[in-house]
């Protein structure tokens, strides 16, 4: 197993290398003028020349690539062309906010979707099953930004129950600012016992979380239902029934263990999708995360920021895939290639 994980990590690093290379060269061939952006619209010609040298844009592209790579290894992602702040610092602020949204969404999707799937399978072809299926197919096929706008319209504009956008009210930010412990704002407010801020962030996160969890929720419910139906038709389930095992135990223990690996694998992969989904959703909800950040960066062709976010997304994908692989390898039937077993 250890050997297997090491192999996967090595493979992951290779993928990151390729992703970095592709995004680096792509960002250089896009028609754009980073030096001009760096100095602003009203700068003199000399200032721009100086900026070209400062940014290293006068060097051959391969040399730029090597330099960029060297900096990357030191954790230096370059300076944002728009804000003139280090990209790594900006990402460090944005990433926890995004991860908080994504994790909460995916975990909720699993906790809600799985039971829906199980009940659907259990009550196959009843009203509950049909409703569940229509619901899950419905939210799977609806574009998330439509879901977002719909939720905003309903809960914020019409009912006025929840805030429209943002992570915290300005008043909360000023009156009870969240002390940074881990960087995860909601978690920090909880740790430091800042209940005012916690409640405020919670209220603000409900709509983005509902939007983001719609896709993994539908997926989990559908996957659970279809795999469980298959498993329930297996001979071993019939044998377990024949020996008097309780139906509840058959479903929630004996079947689920055959189902859960696949569902979590799919969920881990759909987490990547959810992460990319935040790119749109955070812009809609003005959530101060990576999605919002890349939205701004793309519009301004802020290529160090774009490379930074792309690398973050690539790392996230690689890690999620690795988690999925490891979950599959935990199945006793799977003999891991390259493992000691």
């Amino acid at each position: 197993m250890g050997k297997f994980i090491v192999k996967r990590i090595a493979g992951g690093i290779l993928i990151l290398l390729v992703a970095f290379t592709v995004i680096f060269f792509l960002s250089r061939v896009i028609p754009s003028d980073p030096a001009q952006k760096w100095v602003g619209a009203h700068a003199t010609h000399e200032q721009k020349e100086a900026a070209i040298i400062e940014l290293g844009l006068d060097k051959p592209i391969l040399e730029q690539y090597v330099n960029y790579f060297k900096n990357l290894l030191r954790g230096n992602l370059g300076i944002s062309i728009v804000s003139h702040r280090p990209v790594s610092v900006e990402l460090k602020e944005a990433i926890p906010n995004t991860l908080e949204l994504v994790f909460i969404s995916v975990i909720l999707a699993f906790l809600v979707g799985m039971p829906i799937g199980v009940y659907s399978a259990n009550k196959e072809n009843t009203i509950f099953d049909h409703t569940g299926r229509v619901f899950s197919v419905g939210i799977l096929s609806m574009p998330t930004f439509v879901v977002a706008l719909f939720l905003q319209m309903l809960f914020s504009t019409r009912l006025g129950l929840l805030p429209l956008t943002g992570q915290m009210d300005t008043m909360t930010k000023l009156m009870s600012p969240v002390e940074s412990v881990t960087g995860f704002t909601m978690l920090d407010s909880l740790i430091t016992g800042n209940w005012v801020a916690f409640k405020d962030i919670l209220m603000h996160s409900i709509l983005p979380v509902l939007t983001l969890m719609s896709y993994p929720l539908g997926l989990t419910a559908r996957m659970t239902r279809s795999i469980l139906l298959e498993v329930l038709n297996e001979d071993y389930i019939r044998a377990e029934r024949a020996y008097g095992i309780k139906e509840r135990k058959i479903i929630w223990i004996y079947s689920i263990k055959n189902v859960i690996g696949t569902v979590i694998t799919v969920l881990a992969l759909s987490t990547g999708y959810t992460l990319v989904n935040t790119f749109v959703i955070e812009s809609i909800f003005s959530w101060p995360g990576v999605g919002n950040y890349i939205g701004r960066s793309v519009v301004n062709l802020d290529y160090p920021a774009i490379i930074g976010v792309t690398l973050f997304a690539a790392i996230a994908y690689v890690i999620l895939n690795m988690i999925a692989d490891i979950i599959i390898a935990l199945d006793p039937r799977v003999r891991v290639v390259g493992g000691e077993d």
């Binding site: 001979d235 377990e240 024949a242 263990k257």
Partner: peptide, 16 residues
């Protein structure tokens, strides 16, 4: 009343 099934390969739960 108990029963023995025809396919022992498929009649045991594979993950337990």
């Amino acid at each position: 009343i108990t029963m023995i099934f025809q396919d022992p390969m498929a009649s045991l739960n594979p993950v337990f």
